[in-house]
Design a protein around this nucleic acid. Structure first.
Lengths: 245, 245
DNA sequence: TCGCATTTGTGCGTATGTATA
DNA sequence: GTATACATACGCACAAATGCG
């Protein structure tokens, strides 16, 4: 049971809890404490650093506040997965973002239906109310982990072949290209957050009630014509949106 | 008890549930159903429109999905407050945004402490680790309703007079101006979401566990020098972030 | 603490009109 | 014309959450 006590510089202007927080953060950053692993108990950490458990708790609180760890009463404290930095800008592309993070992107088509535009959708896509739209429900993964699930509307008949192209390629960008849209940019982006509804939670493999970030956007083609309205629900634990300046 | 049944055009290609949804949406848009008021019960709406309760439920489901109403089992269905559109861009100013929405802004200083920069804060503000920082906790309101609570760090001694100036003016912009920073722009913005912690919930007047959108940003002065790091928690029900292109 | 009324949530069965093969 | 599938709409019953006395 004899555990060596790590040296903390005491009475030197640097608080003990901060040294502990820095030490643990360094271990997480270095991968010594991997994603999802359980931290030693507060009592064990107190023994390791030769401090009171209150001091350890103060260190853990700062890490928890920054989202590096999550304490769960009665279970323990766990290292959170680092969220994927997801840039939001004029040229947001899921595949490029995930690939750039060194992970493998894939989009899965869950459902497709033909609907008629309501007032809201009509305004976003610049079509008349009641116009036919293709509605797609998709799930987007990085290395198999679902990051977001989206509902996408495209005007018909222009994009009648979109669903097949998407199912085959797993990429919005490539499917649009197959429909004669070589390039597109984002016209508007609105961001909300709320608890996941049961359907979203199932598609994202979340326990019900976890938080999703809802990003509503409209994309336009090179001529500025709206081609796609989109409402994506991101698992809030797994991404961090970065507004590109 | 005799209630007049509103006319729906039946068998004319437009589904009854859609007509009901449109009628209710129009009443909400017109202010006949104000924010926070309870809708008639599903049974009452079914009687009013002369349809089955299922048909009403389908109409309500589409409105709930779009965030216009919120159903609460055992209590009723309520009109949601329209969230404030909050632009996120290079020149984000709380006061200007709220004023532009025709509401009265006010920022309240909850606490101020002098802290030393940890590795994270030091990197964001471009100072050395351990450098003295002023940490402020503030609450930001529109017409008295708290929209966000923020933790702000400013380098010392440059901004030693900031807290007093802020408490007096209730505005970050004016307080910075008093400290010799006439203009500033946003360098970076990162967005996350999670349940509110108890302290945040108290400051935002939220029931514990409601969702907050956490916006972390760094502001720089005209010379590009970081002057302020900020982590704001917005009540997710009360704002919609709009990424300005 | 308990029971009761109110209200939304869910499931099943049935019938009808419409588009498609 | 016939068969099938689908969306729409209705009726009934019960479960679950809430508020009140």
């Amino acid at each position: 049971m004899s555990e060596t006590v790590e040296a903390l510089s005491r009475g030197a202007g640097l608080a003990a809890w901060r040294q502990i927080a820095d030490a643990l953060e360094a271990e997480i950053a270095a991968g010594k404490l991997a994603q999802g692993t359980q931290l030693p108990t507060e009592a064990a950490l107190a023994a390791r650093f030769g401090v009171n458990r209150h001091t350890v708790r103060r260190a853990l609180a700062t890490l928890a506040e920054r989202g590096l760890i999550r304490a769960s009463q009665g279970r323990g404290t766990f290292v959170e997965a680092a969220p994927l930095a997801y840039p939001i800008g004029r040229r947001t592309r899921f595949s490029e973002i995930v690939t750039g993070a060194g992970r493998e992107p894939w989009g899965e088509l869950v459902a497709q239906t033909e609907v008629t535009a309501d007032a809201n959708g009509a305004a976003m896509l610049g079509v008349s109310e009641g116009a036919p739209l293709l509605e797609l429900v998709t799930v987007h993964r990085a290395d198999g982990v679902p990051l977001s699930t989206a509902r996408t509307w495209l005007p018909l008949p222009r994009f009648s072949g979109f669903a097949e192209a998407y199912a085959a390629s797993g990429s919005i960008t490539r499917a649009l290209s197959a429909c004669g849209v070589p390039d597109y940019t984002r016209l508007s982006t609105r961001i909300r957050a709320r608890p996941a509804d049961p359907a979203e939670a199932a598609r994202l493999d979340l326990t019900p009630g976890r938080v999703v970030i809802v990003v509503s956007s409209v994309n336009v083609d090179a001529a500025g014509i709206p081609i796609q309205a989109n409402r994506s629900a991101f698992a809030a634990d797994r991404v961090e949106l970065v507004v590109s300046p």
